[in-house]
Computed example of a mutant assay.
Amino acid sequence: MMGLAHPLRRRARHFRGFGRLRPREGGPARRAARDRAAVCGAVLLAALLLLALSGAAGRDWRALDLTALREPPSARHWFGTTGTGRDMFALSLRGMRRSLAVGLAAGLLATAIAAVAGAFAGLVGGLADRLLMGAADLLLVLPGVLLVAVLAPEGASWGTVVLLLAAFLWPLTARAVRAQARALAEREFVLAALYLGASRRRVVLRHLLPNLTGLLVADATVNVGLAVVGESGLAFLGFGVRPPDVSLGTLIADGTSAATVHPWLFVPPAVLLTLIVLAVNLLGDGLHRVLDRDP
């Protein structure tokens, strides 16, 4: 009996160690916490959001300081001032708040449209599939920025800009969703739901979209980044923002001519825009890696 005890204890230790392998792998949330790109992107994006929502520490972005015209950064004005005495720190945070609001709204709306259109096209097929994907292909070949610039004149409301950006951002995600939905439509649980009389709307909402969460979450971050860049590009060209309101694009446009002489008019909004895009891309890349893995 003593001779058998040692092998049994060794085998028990082996199985105890084997049982700890699966928890160590963890679910998507735990894997995301171990992905450096996802963590860095999430932390940076959260910091930028908190900074934008802070309201520039109580500073009024519309206030004029006539005693400090186009002054460099100082303890009084951290990012310097414009030619009219407006504080660049307050202006930059105001512009970032607007760009983030439009980018988040347009990116999430585009993902929602793509989710419904792509899942429905993949499930139904036939004429509905051809019409939806034909519309997506048409939007992909059209010059989206130019069309949005034409359809969003100077002074257009931020809601109009959101709708126009979302209308040109959903096609790529919709094609990816359609491909996954076509594969899921042949699975047993979808066929069983249809056989039992479930409506197509119910199948899309209750069976297809929950199984596409990983793809949608990852692509939503990409759409948000594209929307932020698109909004800033339109504002740079003079569309969508009604003065005296500002956006990162308008601040960059105003500071471009003085970038070499008065760099504080150009650098802060340009750096903030770069950080937003970097944070969203890092988060999106990390989520793609994490959510594409098999559980």
Rank of each mutant, 00 (worst) to 15 (best):
L287I: 04
S157Y: 01
R289V: 01
L194D: 05
N223T: 14
A235Q: 04
A279R: 00
T256L: 14
G126P: 08
A270G: 00
G122Y: 09
D137P: 12
L194F: 08
L191N: 04
A121K: 04
L93K: 06
S232P: 04
L208K: 00
A220N: 09
V161M: 14
R98P: 05
V116W: 10
G144E: 08
L282K: 00
L51W: 12
G95Y: 03
V224W: 02
G230C: 05
V246K: 10
T173H: 02
A106H: 13
A38P: 00
F266P: 00
P153C: 14
R130D: 15
P73G: 04
H14F: 11
V124Q: 09
G230R: 01
A279E: 04
L139D: 13
S74Q: 01
G286M: 07
L49S: 01
R13I: 07
G19P: 02
L275H: 03
A29C: 02
A227R: 02
A192H: 06
G159C: 13
A47W: 06
A183R: 07
R98W: 09
A42H: 01
A174C: 12
F79E: 13
A235E: 12
L91K: 10
A149E: 11
L237G: 02
G80R: 00
G233C: 11
A258S: 14
D35W: 01
G27K: 05
V224H: 06
A29I: 05
V150E: 15
L109F: 11
A68L: 06
L215H: 05
V217W: 03
V39C: 08
G214V: 06
L248R: 00
L109C: 08
L216Y: 05
A174M: 10
F79D: 11
W170P: 00
L109T: 09
A183V: 08
A156G: 06
F239R: 07
L49Y: 01
L212Y: 12
L4S: 13
V222Y: 12
F15C: 06
A121H: 15
R202N: 03
L8F: 03
V161F: 07
H288Y: 10
L109H: 06
S157T: 13
V277G: 08
L51G: 02
L53M: 01
A258T: 06
R10I: 11
A32L: 14
P7V: 02
I113N: 12
P243V: 06
V116P: 09
V261I: 14
A52F: 01
G238H: 02
L100R: 02
L169Y: 06
A235R: 01
G17Y: 09
S232C: 14
G80S: 05
L196N: 07
R30H: 05
G125F: 13
A38L: 07
R200A: 15
G155L: 05
H288K: 14
A119C: 11
R182W: 07
